[in-house]
């Protein structure tokens, strides 16, 4: 009987690896889910109002999208964000992460601006408080400012329809 133990261990390992092959080892779940959005106080791009804080995100569900004009994933998701801003009721707030304003403005002019409000996080401090480890990352907040969901990497129709919309429906 004990001669079969190695075989049992092997079967367990293979089961583990089959799981491993189907999951992305790089995705790190955020500890912020279910918690209030972290505090911040950032200047806005258009200066109206001058600055915004986490309190300004409350009142209605909102998507907080960390992005930058230098990031390839952001280009990838940009058309879909444009589409969302046209077709969806949800508010879109962009936080421009470690990006020069001189780079950002022409980028927005060229590609269009899907955001209701853009905040600039030049030094990436807000990024750290939100646990951002790469752009784009998108947080879904409910009306009370609680974080419901975090999408790492480009936003896609699949994620929007299968993950985010049901969450928003459940809270409203």
């Amino acid at each position: 009987m004990r001669y079969a133990i190695p075989l049992v261990v092997l079967v367990a390992l293979i089961g583990l690896f089959i799981f491993g092959l189907q999951s992305d080892p790089r995705l790190v779940p955020s500890p912020l889910i279910g918690k209030a959005a972290p505090a911040f106080d950032l200047p806005t791009l258009d200066g109206q109002p001058q600055r915004m804080s986490q309190a300004d995100l409350q009142g209605a569900p909102v998507l907080v999208n960390f992005f930058a004009s230098w990031c390839a994933g952001c280009q990838e998701e940009h058309p879909y964000l444009m589409q969302l801003s046209r077709n969806s009721q949800v508010k879109l707030v962009g936080i421009d992460y470690k990006d020069a304003e001189a780079d950002l403005r022409p980028w927005l002019t060229r590609k269009g601006n899907p955001y209701g409000q853009i905040l600039t996080d030049l030094e990436g401090r807000a990024g750290i408080d939100w646990g951002v480890y790469g752009v784009p990352e998108t947080f879904v907040l409910d009306a009370k400012g609680t974080i419901l969901y975090k999408q790492v990497g480009p936003m896609t129709p699949e994620v929007w329809e299968h993950e985010i919309q049901p969450l928003l429906k459940a809270t409203s």
């Binding site: 004009s69 230098w70 390839a72 280009q75 470690k98 020069a100 030049l122 790469g134 990352e137």
Partner: peptide
């Protein structure tokens, strides 16, 4: 490649495709 960021590591395959993307986004992370 920042959302799958490369450090000293060896993510090489991204190469050719990304080169195209970056040629017209001549922006840099601050």
């Amino acid at each position: 490649k920042n959302w799958i960021p490369a450090c000293a590591g060896m993510t090489k395959r991204l190469g050719a495709a990304l080169l195209l993307l970056t040629i017209f986004t001549a922006n840099a992370e601050v």
